[in-house]
Write a protein that binds this DNA or RNA. Structure first.
Lengths: 232, 232
DNA sequence: CCTACCGATCGGTAGG
DNA sequence: CCTACCGATCGGTAGG
């Protein structure tokens, strides 16, 4: 990904606004993309990210509806109204978690496929996709995608459509490998149905997998491949 | 299962209490088991069941926390406080849905296995279990088990332990078939891990299956078997 | 099962 | 980002 080009008007010598200026300066209307780095008492982008991280953790533990914006504020050391400085509603915070989580997952999945190259055997492509998906779901940086799996119904219809676009692209990337495997006789179910079953099997691991149970993500991926792929 | 023996004191000629008596007669402390049939304006057991049915539907659509007891009352044509005549708390209603749903599922699953007999080939046992599970999840009388899958975290720890007992028995009944299939070489993953993946794959269908999509529950079961079971 | 009600909590906002 | 606050809603209950 490239760093976004600065617009001409926001070029070099722009003075850093102090806290007072930052407060009176219409904060609701930001330019699109990452918020620009404004030095307030705490770094702004970090606060936004921290809100999303803690919110995701709480949404996953207690559920979106049962988590109050006060819970989230307290978890990051803010006062009750302050999350609304960063997000215009509780719902927008949920949407940001899912949307940015899914975007990052789609990008890292594409990197995995690119690294493997288009001529890798489909068996290896699927193994890499499975392994990467477990990393997204269960790895040390996980959290946003599991929220998406459990809180889909908490989105508004418009938000759902928006996140679905990214999710569809993520899932569509599995089809070439599945179709190749079906063609080779290593996958016996219809690829479109197999994809749904396979995502179910993997996603469900969020509800039972514990890294301390002795199973590594590599071993878990291997078990999944053994279950789904028929060797001759 | 046997019908519970009546205690001596609650024998034959007990008069039906009228509406007034039913209202003043400590309604919170019922004997265990099904409520006895007391003729009020509406039949009591039916009202309780209707509350559970509508509550399950709402819990599944909007989520437990986002469903108010007023929503539930309105859905069955009661006023706001009336569900508390049948359940001592919102949480108790959720628990009843899961507990009674899981109990019924365990019983009908056992009937399926009994009908098949202990000498049926493991392949047929698994197919029957899968088919029955889809019936529970997606069939015309479904609803309670999907709520359990999505609202586990809304239970109190004690309620969780209680429902887990039944759920564990339900899942344990799959192990003999899976172990036999593994032994015969038709299941390549470890049976304990395979069971978790398989339940995930099947349970996930709640989020995507639509009977109008042209796929019957029989065809769905067949696809699942093709995916998991390796024929030689 | 209805009526009337309570205390608590919630999402959100104005104003600084 | 904090302070102080509002209107709405919620789970639950007493009393009949």
């Amino acid at each position: 990904m490239q760093t976004p080009k600065r617009t001409l008007s926001s070029s070099a010598a722009e003075p850093e606004p102090g806290p007072a200026a930052a407060a009176s300066d219409v904060p609701a209307r930001r330019p699109r993309g990452r918020p620009r780095k404004t030095i307030t008492e705490q770094d702004d982008g970090n606060r936004r990210r921290k809100l999303m991280d803690k919110a995701a953790k709480l949404f996953l533990t207690k559920g979106y509806a049962a988590t109050s914006t006060r819970d989230i504020a307290a978890a990051v050391g803010m006062h009750s109204g302050s999350p609304y400085y960063h997000f215009k509603s509780k719902s927008a915070l949920l949407h940001a978690v899912m949307s940015e989580g899914m975007t990052a997952a789609l990008e890292s999945q594409q990197e995995v496929l690119d690294r493997l190259g288009p001529d890798a055997p489909p068996h290896e492509q699927l193994r890499a996709l499975v392994r990467h998906h477990f990393e997204i779901l269960l790895g040390p940086r996980s959290g946003f995608i599991p929220v998406m799996l459990y809180e889909w119904r908490s989105l508004t219809p418009a938000q759902r459509r928006d996140v679905a676009r990214i999710k569809d692209a993520y899932e569509a990337a599995w089809m070439p490998a599945l179709q190749a495997l079906a063609h080779a006789g290593a996958l016996k179910a219809e690829p479109a149905v197999a994809r749904l079953f396979i995502f179910g099997a993997l996603n469900w691991a969020v509800s039972w997998f514990s890294p301390r149970k002795g199973l590594s993500l590599d071993a878990l991926s291997e078990q999944a491949m053994l279950l789904f792929i028929h060797h001759d």
